[in-house]
Amino acid sequence: MEQYDKFRILKDLPEEGIIKGQTGCILEVWDENHFEVEISDPSNGFTLFLGALSRDVLEVVK
């Protein structure tokens, strides 16, 4: 996974308000397993989540 890759969430993370299937962008690669990401509302572009997530909940999409 690289900076600016688009990803899909693989499982619900209710404590973060994240729902399986949401998509976002990797903003920063901290190490091979941890990333700073942004998930935005596709209808208006507002940020829904901005923070760190681990590789096990992300799937890169092309």
Rank of each mutant, 00 (worst) to 15 (best):
E38M: 09
Q22I: 10
N44G: 00
I19T: 14
Q3P: 04
D31F: 11
K62A: 14
L53T: 05
G45I: 00
V57I: 15
G51L: 07
R8G: 03
L13Q: 13
D31N: 15
E15I: 08
P42R: 05
I19A: 06
G24E: 04
V60P: 07
V29P: 01
T23F: 00
E38T: 14
D5E: 10
V60E: 14
V37P: 00
S40E: 06
G51K: 08
K20A: 15
L48E: 14
I18G: 07
M1S: 08
E2K: 14
S40W: 08
E28D: 06
E38I: 13
W30M: 09
N33Y: 09
I19M: 00
L50G: 03
G17E: 12
V29K: 14
I18L: 02
I26E: 01
K6L: 11
G51D: 13
D5Q: 05
R55F: 01
V61I: 15
V57C: 13
I39A: 06
N33M: 12
K11H: 04
L53D: 05
K11F: 01
V60Q: 11
L53V: 06
N44P: 09
E2G: 12
Y4F: 15
I26D: 05
G45F: 06
F49I: 10
H34L: 08
K11V: 08
Q22E: 15
S43R: 13
Y4S: 08
V60A: 10
I39W: 00
S43Y: 13
M1C: 07
I18T: 01
G51H: 10
A52T: 12
